[in-house]
Design a protein around this nucleic acid. Structure first.
Length: 333
DNA sequence: ACGGCATGTCCAA
DNA sequence: TGGACCTGCCGTG
């Protein structure tokens, strides 16, 4: 269940491990057989995230567009060259487990079989055979097999000589022409990590202040701003002490700009660490604790009935457009 | 074993 | 506005 930060991390993994190499594509599950056949054998040229979507460009003017939706995930295996801008190489990216541990940040098993965490810094190679299900954990122990055996429903498998990426459960997975790809891009609101952030701020501000729609809905609207999901939405609103029901028009311009800049900052941290850490001002010890337990990471998200961390008022939850919205009725009055 | 739930989106009524 | 879709995991019994 990725928000924008996860998709940026995944795109960087593709940039590192697939771009510049010929790629074998297949659809073990069969539901993407035609698309995989189109891509098979082509060289990957670029990989880029825009909001929650990832685009991989292949030679011959073909673009792979993937949207993970609620359940989608990429599993990486083989030799993984870690992008120095992200905190660790990982077996699985995109999904989180129910306890809320971000699987992005599961430790990597290196070639020697030692459990090691990669830190931000020089790129390194790691042998990854991490998947979180018991089923696959069992397989990983059976020693090196190449290519790795397919486990479960794999919509798309991308394979270089040394790296394997399996896609399961995406909401969208399609091959696009350049025009189609540009059409998709045109519908997406600005992403702080794509293009000029100052220009993004202008687009976002104009879009919000044009509409009567509540700001709580506008933040989730991918044509207004890209990459924000249910967690970041609730947290951004709290951090701005903004009532979710405030019509976009009525949010003061400086507050709207503040939302954009806050989003840009949270996204940057999320991409670097793989964590949706939305609380700041924590001491080192508190920070460690917050990372360890998902329940301590957020101001309001998933805290229905618990006391607000600032004023003690019970956090409320309401359904907004079929999604759960958490907020503090006092701080965000 | 089974039901419910999740960081998402689209579409028909 | 409600349901469909896609998948894995956790709590409950």
């Amino acid at each position: 269940m990725p928000e924008g930060h996860s998709v940026h991390r995944i795109a960087r993994q593709f940039a590192r491990n697939f771009v510049g190499r010929p790629v074998a594509a297949s659809s073990p599950q069969g539901r993407f057989a035609e698309g995989a056949a189109l891509l098979n054998g082509r060289e990957a040229l670029t990989a880029q995230a825009v909001g929650k979507q990832m685009f991989v460009e292949f030679d011959g003017e073909l673009w792979l567009r993937v949207h993970l939706g609620l359940y989608g995930a990429w599993d990486f295996a083989g030799e993984i060259f870690t992008d120095p801008t992200i905190a660790s190489a990982n077996g699985r990216m995109g999904q989180t487990n129910q306890r809320g541990t971000v699987l992005d940040d599961e430790p990597v098993w290196d070639a020697a079989g030692e459990n090691s965490l990669t830190s931000i810094g020089a790129p390194r190679r790691s042998r990854v055979h991490v998947r979180m299900s018991e089923q696959t954990r069992g397989l990983a122990d059976e020693g090196p097999e190449w290519p790795p055996p397919v486990v479960g429903q794999v919509r798309l498998r991308l394979l270089t000589e040394i790296t394997c990426a399996d896609l399961r459960g995406p909401t969208a997975c399609e091959v696009q022409t350049p025009d189609e790809m540009l059409g998709t891009l045109a519908k997406l609101g600005p992403d702080p990590l794509v293009g000029d952030p100052a220009e993004g701020e202008e687009r976002f501000t104009a879009a919000v202040r044009r509409k009567r729609t509540p700001i709580g809905l506008l933040l989730m609207d991918q044509s207004v701003v890209s990459g924000i999901g249910n967690v970041y939405r609730a947290e951004l609103l709290f951090r701005a002490r903004l009532n979710p029901h405030t019509p976009g028009k009525d949010v003061p311009e400086e507050v709207v700009r503040g939302l954009w800049r806050d989003w840009a900052g949270l996204l940057r941290v999320g991409v670097e660490t793989g964590q949706m850490m939305t609380m700041d001002g924590l001491g080192p010890e508190e920070y460690r604790k917050a990372l360890a337990s998902r329940d301590d990471r957020h101001w309001v998200y998933h805290r229905t009935g618990l006391p607000c961390r600032v004023c003690g008022t019970a956090i409320v939850m309401e359904e907004a457009a079929a999604r759960k919205l958490y907020w503090c009725p006092r701080c965000q009055a």
